[in-house]
Write a protein that binds this DNA or RNA. Structure first.
Length: 465
RNA sequence: GGCCCUAUCGUCUAAUGGUUAGGACAUCGGCUUUUCAAGCCGGCAAUCCGGGUUCGAUUCCCGGUAGGGUCACCA
C-alpha cells in the first residue's frame, strides 16, 4: 500500500494563529479557562498569535456583565491576547456576504418553515451534500462521520442573524486560524463546520479536542460542586500560578515526574499530543496541595501582602500596631494555610490574636495532664523566667538550649506545657520556644508573671481566703 | 434511541507487546515532639468484562458493559 505524505500541522512552527472564543452568556467556567490555557501554552510556545473572539450572536442571552467577567478572569490569570477583542455581533455584514454568496452558489437556501411555536417563517439552511467527513484530531486520531443524518441544518435565522456554525467557520477562515483547540463537545460539531468550509472554500484547521473537567460524581462540573469560576478561586485566596498549574495538569502531563510549574515552564513544555483522552475529575485536595507548593515559592514580601489582603479588619489594627510580632508570625501562618482564605479561619478560632494581646484562659488548664500541685507549677514558671532572663540572643533556638535540660529533668510536659499554655492560652499552638521568640523577651516574661499571679489569686479563692 | 468519543490505584496520571504495573494527591502507620502544624520515612491501593492476535498483552483487533458528547431558528 502506498503511504500518503501528509504535512503534520503540529509540526508547523510559523504563522500559528489560534483563538479563544467564549460566549458571554454566563460566568466564565473553569473548563473554558483550561481550554484557553491549552490554546495559550501552545500558541506562545510557537510564537503565534492568539485572538479573543466574543461569540455573542445570541442577542438574548449575551450580556455585557458576562463579557466583563471573561475579561476579568483572563486579566487575573495574566493571559494576554493579540489585537483587539473581536465581537461577532459587530460582524453581521461580513456573515451576510458569505450567506448571500452561498445562496447564490446554491450551497445554502432560504427555507420556508412551519412558523408555529415562535419560530420564523423563513430561515437559511445549508444544502447538505450528504457525504462522509473524515478529519484528524490531535488527541483522538481519525474521526469519521456520515453527515447525511445532519440533514439541511440551519446556518442563519436571516441574512442579518447568522448562527454559530456559520460564524465560527467564517471567522476562523478570515482570521486565518491554523489550530482549533476546544472542548470535546466540539467533536460532533466539526463535521458540520467542515462541510461549510468546503462550501466557502476555506481550509481546514488542525483540530484538537480536549476532554471535559468532571465533578467527583463524574457529571459535568457545576455550581453544585463548589467553585466553577477562577474569580471564585481568586477570592478564596488561591494563587493564579497554582490555578494555572493545576488546570494544566488536569488532562495533560509532560511525561516526567515534575508537578509544579511556572507559566513559562508550561509554555516551554506543553505538548498537545500528550493530552489525555478521557475526562478528568476536578480534585480540590490536589489543587490545595499545588497552591501550598506555590505559596512556598512566594517571596516574603508577596506573602506578607497577600496575608494582609485577606486578614479581617478587626485583627488588622492589632497587626499594624505590632510590626515586629507580625513579621515573625508570618512563617507560622505560611506553614498552616493552604489558601489565603484560611487566615480568616485562623483568626476565627483564635489562632492569631494571642500573638498580639494577652490570652484569656483558666488556671486549671496550666497543669500538665494529672498534675495538681500549684506550688510546684509556680516554681517551674519562676524557674523559666529565671532562664529567660539569662538568654542574650532571644531566639527560639537559644531559648530551647537554655530550658531544655531543666525541662528534661522535671519532665518535659510538666515544664513546656504550662509555658506554652501561658503564652498562647490554647490547647494547640506552635511550640513554646517559637512562641517566646515571636512574642519577644519582655512580653514573654510578662505573660509568665501574669500566670503566676493568676495562680495565686486562684489559690486564695479556692482556699476561701 | 441514532451517531461520535472515552475506560490503569479513591483522584490526577506513567508505562504503547516482555516492568515486582512507576509517581503525585488523599488515606493509614512510624519518626520528630509538651500540644498542633510542617517535615522525613514507610504501608494500603489499579490495568471494566469477554473473546481473539501473539511465545507473551495495560498496550493491537472485535464484542459487551459503563460513562460522556451530539442530534436547536444556543454556543
Amino acid at each position: 500500500m502506498k503511504k500518503q505524505t501528509v504535512i503534520n500541522p503540529l509540526k508547523i512552527d510559523k504563522n500559528i494563529i489560534t483563538r479563544i472564543p467564549p460566549s458571554p452568556t454566563g460566568l466564565l467556567h473553569i473548563g473554558n479557562v483550561r481550554t484557553f490555557l491549552f490554546n495559550y501554552f501552545f500558541t506562545k510556545q510557537k510564537n503565534g498569535k492568539i485572538i479573543l473572539r466574543m461569540e455573542d450572536t445570541d442577542k438574548k442571552r449575551s450580556k455585557k456583565e458576562f463579557e466583563e467577567h471573561i475579561l476579568e478572569s483572563l486579566k487575573w490569570l495574566g493571559l494576554s491576547y493579540d489585537g483587539e477583542i473581536y465581537r461577532q455581533s459587530e460582524r453581521t455584514d461580513i456573515y451576510k456576504k458569505y450567506l448571500e454568496k452561498m445562496i447564490e452558489e446554491g450551497s445554502a437556501y432560504i427555507s420556508k418553515e412551519d412558523s408555529s411555536e415562535d419560530k420564523r417563517a423563513e430561515v437559511i439552511r445549508f444544502k447538505n451534500p450528504n457525504k462522509i467527513i473524515e478529519f484528524e484530531d490531535t488527541v483522538r486520531g481519525k474521526i469519521s462521520f456520515d453527515t447525511t443524518e445532519l440533514g439541511d441544518f440551519v446556518i442563519a435565522k436571516s441574512l442579518e442573524e447568522p448562527l454559530y456554525h456559520l460564524t465560527v467557520v467564517v471567522d476562523d477562515f478570515e482570521g486565518e486560524i491554523t489550530h482549533v483547540i476546544r472542548g470535546e463537545d466540539g467533536i460532533s460539531n466539526t463535521p458540520r463546520q467542515i462541510l461549510i468550509q468546503e462550501a466557502i472554500d476555506a481550509p481546514c484547521p488542525q483540530y484538537t479536542h480536549i476532554p471535559f473537567i468532571l465533578s467527583p460524581d463524574r457529571t459535568k462540573l457545576s455550581k453544585r460542586h463548589g467553585a466553577t469560576t477562577v474569580t471564585e478561586f481568586r477570592d478564596k485566596g488561591y494563587l493564579k500560578e497554582a490555578v494555572i498549574n493545576y488546570l494544566a495538569l488536569l488532562g495533560w502531563n509532560p511525561g516526567t515526574e515534575q508537578e509544579i510549574f511556572s507559566l513559562d515552564e508550561l509554555i516551554e513544555k506543553f505538548d498537545l499530543t500528550k493530552i489525555q483522552k478521557g475526562g478528568a475529575i476536578f480534585d480540590i485536595e490536589k489543587l490545595n496541595w499545588v497552591n501550598k507548593e506555590h505559596i512556598k515559592l512566594m517571596s516574603d514580601e508577596d506573602f506578607r501582602n497577600k496575608v494582609l489582603e485577606f486578614l479581617p479588619e478587626e485583627i488588622k489594627d492589632l497587626v499594624n500596631s505590632n510590626e515586629k510580632v507580625f513579621k515573625k508570625l508570618l512563617p507560622i501562618i505560611k506553614e498552616r494555610i493552604e489558601k489565603f482564605e484560611d487566615v480568616v479561619e485562623m483568626n476565627q478560632v483564635g489562632d492569631l490574636d494571642y500573638y498580639f494581646s494577652q490570652p484569656e484562659y483558666e488556671v486549671e488548664k496550666l497543669f500538665w495532664k494529672d498534675e495538681t500541685d500549684s506550688v510546684l507549677l509556680k516554681k517551674r514558671l519562676e524557674k523559666i523566667i529565671e532562664f529567660l532572663n539569662e538568654v542574650e540572643d532571644f531566639s527560639a533556638e537559644k531559648i530551647k538550649e537554655k530550658i531544655w535540660d531543666y525541662a528534661s529533668e522535671e519532665g518535659r510536659g510538666s515544664v513546656l506545657w504550662p509555658m506554652r499554655y501561658t503564652l498562647s492560652g490554647k490547647e494547640k499552638s506552635p511550640d513554646p520556644f517559637v512562641l517566646a521568640d515571636i512574642l519577644g523577651k519582655e512580653e514573654t516574661i510578662n505573660r509568665l508573671k501574669n500566670a503566676i499571679e493568676k495562680i495565686d489569686t486562684n489559690n486564695q479563692i479556692t482556699q476561701g481566703i
